[in-house]
């Protein structure tokens, strides 16, 4: 790629404007990425120093000891595998529940429908911290504390309201004619849903999945109620153990933080294409 090509392609913008746009984008990227690099920097700094007067990202005495220590000496892999197991399974369940509910809300009128739509929004309005005590009480009375089924149940529901909102908007824009064609072909109503609607909604489902995934992956509130036994804990609880009243193992903490960001990044890059076309069709076409 020559410089000439770089500056003069397709759209007729002037080279100056192009440079300006790239310059702005590069500045934005630096602002965005720099703080994350600083966490990475803490993770390769020896002797547990949180801060440094040095602006360089890679310190002179860089070491990977913190990573090794996290992986070998601590139960980090156990926490990570618990998190992965729970997050993958429950975000799939959550999306399935939301996908079917959103379809019902999008396609039928039934008593309580409007109330349900408003309730879905209203559930986001109560301060989360205040739910700690009631959740504790319910979980205890239902015998759900320290059980896998309790945790799976709780996680499956957490991101459902948001997912229904996103998916309902998307379904609304899928033309009726496609469903009618399906019914003519002899499919029943339920088959129409999973053979016609769901494949068409792949992008919106991807967004819902991503949202579910990040929400559950990073959850601390429910985890500390439902997961008490050491063999069951997820990474947010595990990393919290590195912080004590005054002293925190910052190097290990940062190393852990870098490693737990990997699955989210991977999923994010993997679904970026869907994500970006995803919200499109969804709301605007109709």
């Amino acid at each position: 790629m020559t410089i000439r090509q770089f500056f003069f392609s397709r759209r007729g913008d002037s080279p100056f404007k192009r440079i300006l746009i790239h310059a702005v984008l590069i500045c934005m990227c630096i602002i965005t990425v720099y703080p994350v690099l600083r966490i990475a920097s803490v993770s390769i700094r020896p002797s547990n120093r949180l801060l440094s007067t040095d602006m360089a990202i890679i310190p002179e005495d860089a070491t990977l000891n913190n990573y090794v220590s996290m992986l070998v000496e601590r139960d980090f892999l156990q926490w990570l595998s618990n998190s992965l197991l729970l997050t993958i399974s429950t975000s799939l369940i959550g999306v399935s529940i939301a996908a079917s509910s959103a379809y019902a809300i999008s396609r039928w009128y039934f008593p309580g429908r409007k109330l349900m739509i408003i309730t879905l929004l209203a559930t986001q309005m109560i301060p989360g911290a205040m739910l700690l005590l009631p959740l504790y009480i319910i979980a205890t009375r239902a015998g759900l504390i320290n059980t896998w089924h309790g945790t799976i149940f709780a996680y499956s529901v957490t991101a459902v309201p948001f997912s229904i909102w996103i998916l309902k908007g998307y379904y609304d824009t899928i033309p009726r004619e496609l469903e009618q064609a399906g019914l003519v072909d002899g499919l029943n109503r339920f088959q129409v849903f999973y053979r016609v609607i769901l494949p068409l909604s792949a992008p919106a489902l991807a967004i819902a999945l991503l949202f579910n995934f990040t929400q559950i992956w990073n959850d601390f509130l429910l985890a500390r109620i439902f997961l008490q036994s050491p063999s069951m804990i997820t990474w947010p609880l595990g990393l919290a153990r590195l912080q004590e009243q005054f002293q925190t193992q910052w190097g290990l903490f940062a190393a852990g933080a870098m490693m737990v960001s990997v699955p989210v990044m991977a999923l994010f890059l993997f679904s970026a294409r869907w994500l970006i076309t995803g919200l499109t069709l969804g709301s605007v076409k109709g």
Binding site: I97, T119, P134, V157
Partner: peptide, 20 residues
């Protein structure tokens, strides 16, 4: 189709709100 979501939200989100 909405039953699982309704039950889940009722138990995990609405009940705590009512409790509050």
């Amino acid at each position: 189709l909405i039953a699982p979501a309704v039950i889940g939200i009722a138990v995990l989100i609405l009940y705590p709100i009512v409790y509050t």
